[in-house]
Nucleic acid binder design. Structure first.
Lengths: 340, 340
DNA sequence: CGTAGACATGACTGCGCAGTCAGACCCGAT
DNA sequence: ATCGGGTCTGACTGCGCAGTCATGTCTACG
């Protein structure tokens, strides 16, 4: 059972035996603790290499009380925004040395975010990231690890929640101001589903831009992020002659809207200007090339994770200072001054 | 330390004490073992509820030798295909009861897939999914868990590898045949990066469709999946008057290609027909509405995970039989009979 | 009425590691 | 020579659970 045939996976004691040290010293080497002589370190690493030793994470977690992993509540959608944020989170997590456990909240899932968080806690995580939060009313889960909520009030979680600044409101504001600066008398808004905090932020930014200039607020239409919904509710906007500029809460809906406008024989941008949100990769190649704002997903993901890791490792320290990510408006061919 | 103040998180012994049973019986209840009386089960569950007990996964993994988690090697990209597949995998994993650990292989990452696999093994997983494999030449990692490779020869992994049938070749074939059926004398191919197995499959399917009808094979241009690359290499196709039909290896590149054609004053579909691949959500809303083929990501992800879980839990049993997923061609407005 | 078998529970143990503490050794300063 | 502190190492232990085996109880059936 120890020597012949298919050998069992080696333990740290095996490495210790080969290296001629104690098991504890092997542990020291693998945890990069100080006070291990260079000679011993080398011997241990060689022995480990020779045996194909791999630290057992379960045992490590049990002994140390830390899992070295972070749970992510994702959305179960291939939408560009959420998917990009998830990618950014993964990238950022790599750098921090934490592994990632990912769970979805399907729309259909009645348990929702609370259920996903529960399941992550069951799995054992040192921290939790809620990627694209949706307002589900009262969500109360007893969470005893730090929680990072991207772009939503930390109301979700208890005392140990931190928020990373997506600042969709600033981007929405820039998009709206771009249209106003072109001379449009007002800007309509094709909003995202208002259960999403990010959709609310975009609406708020649009609202603030109008308010700044003392402009009345046209009525809002709401889609579900999909191009199909943009097309559906876009027909309403297309039928309204007073509409000359629309800020859509994401690029997909903007594309649906443009189709609706086209079918209503309204030219973009000659008759109606459209600004999207996200700068999806095809935005620069459709007709007309779409003016939009870009979210710095990687930067946001990274600073967010830094906050979270800080909260995990130094629970008593002050929170890290954060600066707002830059606002990037990408002006292309779907916006122009109003007609007349 | 046990009673006053911030109480520690409860253990199974605590539950046992409250329920008046042994720790082992608590374990039995939480593992749904047989031979626990209904009364005891209820008492245990109530005690657990009351204490807010949560099974400690690390301890469980250590004691049982199973982590109940599956590692996913993802691509670190928000491309629609890979992102959708990942979503499908997450959904499917939920049903199987396995947790998901996700790692990326960034393009820039020299360690590549092998590094990602290593890192998953370090974390401890019962099985591994390689989501969108790229040929990286000789990849040799000693893997002692089953590996599921989507749409690539199992050459990647050792004896315990299984493959799930994306069958991109069949879809590519259907796309090509659609164009031929419309009367085109030949079909050009805007290929994906050939290091990706899925790009190769699409090329193979296209090639097979041409070969079936004894048609010569036009030269292939290759992009990198992005709309930008589709535009770049698309200009070459656009400049060639003999091109009347193009099968693009994904929708993004098709969109870039359409822009290139438009700029070359070639109408789509009147002069040139274009078929994409993926059916991204905006495909139905751009101009012209894009004809494309759709991959059944959810179904593929699900059957794949079933295979993997089967391999994990019944290592000695025969592999499950698999049937090819259906081929779905979505005909819209970017294809038409050839000019003249 | 005795016994085989199904059912139900508990005592004991070890999974593989990191935390704790106790040394042993070394150096420079007294 | 003596001491204090920094450096290096090992013995012992316990993290919280599931595996194993022993034990006890309750049927069913000859």
């Amino acid at each position: 059972m120890t020597q012949l045939g298919g050998r069992p996976t080696p333990r740290s004691v095996d490495v210790a035996r080969v290296a001629g040290v104690s098991q504890k010293t092997v542990s020291r080497v693998f945890n990069n603790e100080q006070y291990v002589s260079a000679a011993v370190r080398t011997r241990v690493l060689e022995a480990a290499e020779q045996l194909g030793y791999r630290l057992n994470n379960a045992a490590r977690a049990l002994a140390s009380g830390r899992t070295r992993s972070i749970g992510v509540v994702a959305l179960g959608t291939a939408l560009y925004g959420p998917a990009s944020l998830l990618v950014g989170i993964e990238r950022a997590a790599r750098e921090t040395g934490y592994a990632l456990r990912v769970t979805n909240t399907a729309d259909s899932d009645p348990a929702g975010v609370a259920g996903a968080v529960e399941s992550l806690l069951d799995q054992g995580v040192d921290g939790i990231v809620i990627s694209e939060p949706i307002d589900e009313g009262e969500v109360s889960v007893r969470v005893d690890v730090p929680v990072l909520v991207y772009g939503a009030p930390a109301a979700f979680a208890g005392a140990r929640a931190v928020t990373a600044g997506v600042r969709a409101d600033l981007l929405a504001r820039a998009a709206t101001e771009h249209l106003l600066d072109l001379g449009h008398r007002t800007v309509h808004h094709l909003a995202g589903p208002q259960r999403w905090y990010s959709a609310r932020d975009r609406l708020e930014g649009w609202r603030a831009a109008l308010a700044d200039r003392g402009l009345p607020e046209p009525s809002v239409v709401e889609g579900d992020w999909s191009a199909a919904s943009g097309y559906e509710v876009g027909r309403e906007l297309a039928a309204d002659d007073t509409v000359t500029a629309v800020f859509a809460a994401n690029d997909d809906m903007a594309i649906g809207l443009i189709r609706a406008l086209r079918e209503a024989r309204r030219r973009v941008p000659a008759d109606v200007s459209v600004v999207g949100f996200d700068d999806i990769p095809v935005a620069d190649f459709i007709s007309p090339r779409l003016t939009t704002v870009r979210q710095p997903f990687d930067a946001v993901a990274k600073t967010g994770l830094e906050l979270l890791v800080h909260a995990i490792e130094k629970p008593d320290a002050d929170p890290l200072p954060v600066s707002d990510p830059p606002v990037e408006l990408v002006v292309r061919a779907s916006t122009a001054p109003p007609p007349h």
